[in-house]
């Protein structure tokens, strides 16, 4: 008899309010052989859209060891093109096979006229865009037969037409569509800095009950004569200011599953595990307070 939990119990249990790391290809073997003390893992769904081979082989093994979250970067939720059913089909196939605890993507668009830009592009925060995004998330959740989480993006420009603050827009999307929120604290910091918004005010405007997951990452700074633009590159440790904002978020929301993301200049797995341990300490303090 196998000691492994049956698929049903795997899928039913939620990810605990612990710290996890984003799993990338260079860490497959080390993660599986050393089984670091982290609460869960998250992967980019599209990296597993292939038919077979190493990515799916290693994800299968990692999934047997850790709770899993599937994080998408290519659904193009806010696009005015037709919903990409081929993309949704591949995601549905992945969900059926790996039974993730969370499935998420971004409050953004990335394609128009059939051309994809492979980036998380900003939406104008208008009533039109709100209705459109809600209708798209409805369709996606119906298709997948489950809740998805929507993440606030880092943005580098604002539209003249935008009339709804992002936090309010995101909250309204979640309210109307029934999706959950994946709150990226680094993205809040990056966007708030870029646009001169109050980051703490942003955080506290998000209703705690809607937030299922938190992301943390590092950014880079582009310097121009007029000032700096922060770029969400996932290429560095989490900065002190974002740790501090994370503490604020946790005290407002309560403990939430928290992910360390790193996608460029990816360091040794131990560095990610160490970052996760820092988040775990903050989560632990919050749990003690909550008790």
């Amino acid at each position: 008899m196998s000691l492994a939990p049956t698929p049903k119990t795997r899928a039913a249990s939620a990810i605990p309010a612990t710290a996890g790391v984003g799993l990338r290809a260079q860490h497959y073997k080390e993660l599986i052989s050393t089984r670091p003390n982290i609460g869960w893992i998250e992967v980019h769904s599209e990296n597993y859209f292939g038919e077979g081979g190493a990515p799916l082989y290693y994800l299968e093994q990692a999934r047997a060891l850790y709770p899993l979250s599937l994080h998408g970067v290519g659904m193009s939720i806010g696009s005015t093109d037709e919903l990409n059913l081929d993309h949704l089909n591949k995601l549905a196939r992945l969900i059926a096979r790996f039974e993730p605890h969370f499935v998420s993507d971004h409050l953004c668009w990335s394609s128009v006229g059939g051309d994809y830009l492979n980036d998380l592009l900003p939406l104008p925060y208008t009533p039109e865009a709100l209705a459109h995004v809600v209708q798209r998330i409805d369709a996606i959740q119906d298709y997948l037969g489950r809740e998805i989480l929507i993440e606030n993006p880092s943005t580098y420009l604002q539209f003249l037409d935008s009339e709804i603050p992002e936090a309010e827009f995101l909250t309204e999307v979640a309210k109307r569509s029934g999706c959950g929120i994946l709150l990226d604290v680094n993205n809040v910091y990056v966007s708030a800095t870029n646009h001169g918004i109050d980051a703490e005010q942003y955080l506290t405007a998000i209703p705690a009950t809607m937030v299922r997951e938190i992301h943390l990452a590092g950014f880079t700074v582009n310097r121009y004569p007029e000032g700096d633009i922060l770029i969400d590159t996932h290429s560095a440790p989490v900065v002190d200011a974002v740790w501090s904002l994370y503490r604020t978020a946790i005290s407002h929301l309560g403990p939430r599953p928290t992910l360390i993301e790193w996608d460029t200049d990816i360091p040794a797995l131990a560095v990610l595990v160490e970052e996760a341990a820092k988040a775990q300490i903050i989560l632990g303090e919050a749990s003690v307070r909550a008790a």
Partner: peptide, 9 residues
Amino acid sequence: HPPRSGNLH
């Protein structure tokens, strides 16, 4: 030849 899908593969 911009990408024609959100699947970079």
